[in-house]
């Protein structure tokens, strides 16, 4: 994966900017630590999994989720927001005819406020440049092979919306406990590179 070699240089720049901002009283390092801690405690891909599992068992919730995902997340106590209140969450549902997958080609936009930080590969130039051009090939590398007649929709999050994939429930979902259902909805399913 390209791009990682620049992290050291980037970190050094961030450190210099942070030191300057702190010196001039613009930021408070303790406040930054507190915010990072809060974020780490309150958001994780399990939030998204809870939304999906609820939607599997509750058609009315599913409808609300697809209509206004931010509000539907809020119903389960996942507030979103964070660094920008302008960021909107939008859920896209897989069906037998359509499979969705999410990317940010320009940077690494991700529903961080709801799902926590993205995996490293999501930010790699390899994923970002290839999944728009050859989504089926990239999905196959993740072990997800789709029938030819399924439409693949790639969502390139480049503005004020963040995307969450609602995968189809696996066969026999009714026989699974809620805990087992949650375990099936991995972070990769919510990005769309895997299916439960």
């Amino acid at each position: 994966m390209s791009g990682h070699h620049r992290n050291g240089e980037l970190q050094a720049r961030v450190n210099v900017l942070l030191a300057l901002a702190e010196e001039r009283g613009i930021v408070d390092r303790e406040e930054i630590d507190r915010r990072i801690e809060t974020l780490g405690r309150s958001v994780s891909p399990v939030n998204g999994a809870r939304m999906v599992v609820r939607a599997w068992g509750d058609p009315a919730y599913r409808e609300r989720l697809l209509d206004d995902a931010g509000a539907a997340a809020g119903e389960l106590g996942f507030a979103g927001g964070g660094y920008s209140s302008e960021i909107r969450l939008h859920a896209v549902a897989n069906t037998p005819e359509v499979h969705n997958v999410v990317v940010c080609t320009l940077c690494s936009c991700y529903p961080l406020a709801w799902l926590g930080p993205p995996p490293a590969w999501y930010k790699s130039e390899a994923y970002r440049s290839r999944v728009v051009r050859d989504p089926r090939g990239v999905l196959a590398e993740f072990g997800t092979t789709l029938p030819d007649d399924v439409e693949v929709r790639v969502w390139d999050a480049s503005a004020e919306a963040r995307y969450l994939v609602v995968p189809m429930a696996p066969d026999g979902v009714d026989t699974l406990s809620e805990e087992d259902q949650l375990a099936r909805v991995t972070r990769d399913c919510l990005i769309g590179v895997a299916v439960p």
Binding site: P135, E151, D156, A159
Partner: peptide
């Protein structure tokens, strides 16, 4: 359409959705 962006070798059923101002 994938073919509009990448030409005839793109998957005929692939689409890319982009948010644009």
């Amino acid at each position: 359409a994938g073919t509009e962006l990448w030409g005839p070798d793109a998957g005929p059923r692939d689409t890319v959705h982009v948010d644009l101002f």
